[in-house]
Amino acid sequence: MVTRTRSRAWTVAAAVPDPEIPVVTIEDLGILRDVTEDDVGRVHVQITPTYSGCPAMEAIRNDLVEQLSDEGYRQVEVEFVLAPAWTTDWMTDEGRAKLEEYGVAPPAARAAGVTPLTLSVRCPQCGSPDTRESSRFGSTACKSLWICNACREPFDHFKAI
C-alpha cells in the first residue's frame, strides 16, 4: 500500500531545515512536494529547486536521506522535479513569519502572472515601510539586498518569483 497523506515519513522530511536559511524547513519554503512510503520502509521524496542553479539541493538531498535513514527507513530515494515551477506562493504563512523574525523580509504575495519588482518591502528589524533596494541580487539566488531608511540597517529580502 502506498500512502500519500501526511505520513510519518512526510513529518520527518518536512522537518529538514533549509541549509542556507536554517530557521525555515523545506516544507515552510514549499520545496517539499511529495513523500510516499510503502510497508517495507521504502520512501520516495520529491523536492523542487527554488532556482535552477540552487546549490542547496544536494545538501537537502543528503539531509533527507540521513534524517529518514535515522528514522529507520531502509531505502530513501530523493527525486528533483521541475514542473510545476516553484513559486514563493508555496511558502507557508508560518514560513513567512519565521523568515521575518529571523530578519529576512518575506516575499510579497504574487499577483497572477506578474513579477512585482517594484513593491515596497517592510523592514524586518523595525517594521518601517521606508526601505530601498541596494542590490537586486543577494547572498543567495533567492534573496535581494535592502537597506532601511528608518533604522539604517541592511537586510535580506526573499524575492517573489
Partner: peptide, 20 residues
C-alpha cells in the same frame, strides 16, 4: 561588490538551466 554578487547569481541561474 554588489555587482560581483549579482553577476555570480545570474551566472548561477544560467548554469542551473544549462545543467538541466
Amino acid at each position: 561588490l554588489e555587482e560581483d554578487v549579482a553577476l555570480a547569481n545570474i551566472g548561477l541561474d544560467q548554469l542551473g538551466q544549462a545543467r538541466a
